[in-house]
Simulated assay, not measured.
Amino acid sequence: MNETITNPVVLQRADPHIYRHSDGYYYFTASVPEYDRIELRRAETIGGLAASEPVVIWKKHLKGIMSGYVWAPEIHYIAGRWYVYFSAGSDDEPFAQRLYVLENESANPLEGNWEEKGRIYTAWDTFSLDATTFEHNGVQYLVWAQTDPSIQGNSSLFISKMANPWTLEGGQTVLTRPEYDWEIIGYRVNEGAAVLKKNGSIFLTYSASATNHHYCMGMLTAREDSDLLDAASWTKSPVPVFTSSEENGQYGPGHNSFTVSADGQQHLLVYHARNYKEITGDPLFDPNRHTRVQPVEWDEVGRLVLGVPVPDGQDVSI
């Protein structure tokens, strides 16, 4: 039996990631406004996540690496263990983001011990964030955002195979760089990738531009039988696929993930957005990016369609 929810689902949680596990629980993590810790919560329904008690599984270090801003955790279950991917800076350079991984062997990731597996090393020692991972045809992949020193821009998206959940293997391929007008407003940004597989294709969504009302989502598509490490396998939409809605009062939707309905039949878009346009000060420190969930749709040829952000207070059947 599925459920009806009302958005926003969880207040003041940006970069949301919801994973439905085989134990029947939804697991939720996101950036907290203080950017100083990683929380997990779980519930048997998506609507139940709002009232579920968050458990702090990790706090930033007092100094050195992993002591700056903590951003965009994601929880994944790989080969019988739980992993959380996140980025963090240092106390002297809070924006010097690099990628890190935590591991937990417990059946319930809200319990047990979270071990620091260390940093994920990429080809360059530059600003890196928003790692996500997915399996395809027996291969584990990592997709992440990073500053490419060879071009102008804040972050591009890259993909690589993984030797294990915290180590890359082989080369890394650039999937998309910020190039269109809607990707370079305020900052030149491609970040926050998420992957959904269906209808013989792999859909990779991502976010672009500054994190105010210009924040929006783009999409890459590849055939499921193609070489995912070949940039030519991916087709990039020249227009954004999910944007602010003045009519519905939703601004800056993005940094999404995907999950499924309780019966596993309906794919769901998980994202954050604000319910106002004008922001005082730096958008990074405005805490009101709230977590929202709504169903996705599919067009007549099986392509992913995200629609428009639903308004606050509207019931949504998922």
Rank of each mutant, 00 (worst) to 15 (best):
N164L: 06
N256T: 05
E53S: 11
P54C: 11
I151T: 15
E183T: 12
D286H: 13
G138D: 03
S209A: 15
G153K: 10
T173Q: 03
F242P: 00
V9L: 15
I318W: 11
K236N: 12
T133S: 14
G200K: 03
W298F: 15
T147H: 12
P94K: 06
G254E: 09
N212F: 05
G200E: 01
G48N: 09
W298A: 05
E115R: 09
L196K: 06
V143L: 09
W114S: 09
Y251N: 06
L142H: 12
E39H: 03
L284K: 08
T221E: 05
P238K: 08
Q294S: 10
E93F: 00
E191Y: 07
T4F: 02
G281D: 06
T167M: 14
E278P: 01
V270T: 14
S150Y: 11
D15H: 11
I120G: 09
P238H: 05
N108E: 05
P178F: 12
E93S: 09
F203T: 03
L284G: 08
S244A: 14
S128H: 06
P253Y: 01
T173E: 03
D315M: 10
V308N: 06
G24P: 02
G186K: 00
N108R: 02
E297S: 15
V293C: 13
D227I: 01
D36A: 06
N190K: 03
F158S: 07
I65E: 14
A273V: 13
T221R: 04
L129C: 02
A193T: 08
F285W: 14
V189Y: 04
D315S: 12
I46R: 03
K161F: 12
V101P: 05
V10A: 02
D230I: 00
I279K: 11
W234T: 06
